[in-house]
């Protein structure tokens, strides 16, 4: 990765404002060949703006964006990317097959139709007009357009929104296959399990700034807290008084305790309640880490 002269996409101190709103307040970002980078953040954090700058739909007010070391709107750079943007609808009266035909034609060495169909999981949709597709099928058709040019870099802005679990798994495995072929992916998502499943690296944005970045494990490790779940006769209020305990909640018959010192709390629990059962200790997931990080940033 380091042997390459330049990253496949880069934002350098990019600033973008819309009227009074600061969408990006100086963001530095590099995407390397073959990696999956997940951009996370609450709504309005600047994820879509970052993508808009990288694909050349918008210009940074100050700072710069580049694709393959050239301007993002250069034709040569665009030939090497594919994109699935948010809130896109394709022409309703064309069929999926016609749309793929149109987009394949933009590239010098497109993927075969059979290949696109298999990857995007749209076998039975080729002859359907876009308007007749369900929301999830439309998303898959958009994915098909994004991948039909053998892109070296894919931008996927909330790709699996509206997909059912099967369709999401299909798309994840397609993304993994593309990454195995050497394609880099920039992904935004609201589903943290998606970032957890796919991403090599996570960048968390809040209010137009990067507030955390690292591997999924590194981001998770930023949050020291763990969750303890068990069935116990001890009262919640009593547990809440222990100094190491951050919070106590009850979920059905179980108590859920959040703590930074799980071992000490477990020892205390077993000491005070010999009948305690169904003990479970879990490290915080990306979801918890994310909540924590964005709360700190706010």
């Amino acid at each position: 990765m380091n042997s390459l002269p330049y990253p496949v996409a880069r934002l350098a101190n990019a600033v973008k404002r819309y009227g009074q709103t600061q969408a990006l307040a100086g963001v530095d970002l590099e995407v390397h060949r073959g990696e999956v980078l997940a951009l996370l953040g609450p709504n309005g954090a600047g994820k879509t703006t970052a993508i808009s700058l990288l694909v050349g739909l918008q210009q940074a007010d100050t700072g710069s964006a580049s694709l393959f070391d050239s301007a993002p709107n250069a034709l040569a750079a665009r030939r090497r990317i594919g994109a699935m943007l948010q809130a896109t609808s394709l022409p309703e009266t064309l069929t999926v097959g016609e749309l793929i035909d149109l987009f394949r034609n933009y590239y010098a060495r497109p993927r075969t139709v059979a290949d696109v169909v298999a990857l995007a999981g749209i076998d039975d949709l080729l002859d359907c007009r876009y308007a007749k597709l369900s929301g999830g099928q439309q998303r898959r058709a958009q994915f098909a357009l994004a991948i039909c040019g053998r892109a070296e870099l894919l931008f996927l802005d909330e790709p699996t929104t509206g997909l059912d679990i099967d369709a999401r798994e299909t798309m994840w495995s397609a993304i993994r296959q593309l990454v195995a072929e050497g394609c880099a992916v920039v992904l935004t998502t609201h589903y943290l399990e998606e970032a957890e499943a796919l991403a090599d690296r996570v960048v968390v944005l809040a209010q137009g700034r990067i507030v955390a970045q690292g591997t999924v494990a590194e981001i998770r490790a930023r949050v020291a807290s763990r969750r303890i779940r068990c069935v116990t006769t001890l009262a919640d209020a009593a547990i809440a008084l222990w100094p190491e305990v951050r919070s106590v909640a009850r979920d059905g018959g179980r108590v859920e305790i959040v703590t930074d010192a799980a071992e000490m709390v477990v020892r205390q629990l077993l000491f005070e309640d010999a009948q305690l059962s169904e003990l479970e200790v879990r490290r915080a997931g990306l979801a918890e880490a994310f909540v924590e990080i964005t709360k700190e940033a706010a």
Binding site: L85, Q86, T88, S89, L90, Q142
Partner: peptide
């Protein structure tokens, strides 16, 4: 509806 944006990103 974003079709124009998608075509701008594509190497049309």
């Amino acid at each position: 509806r974003g079709w124009l944006a998608l075509k701008r990103v594509a190497p049309m």
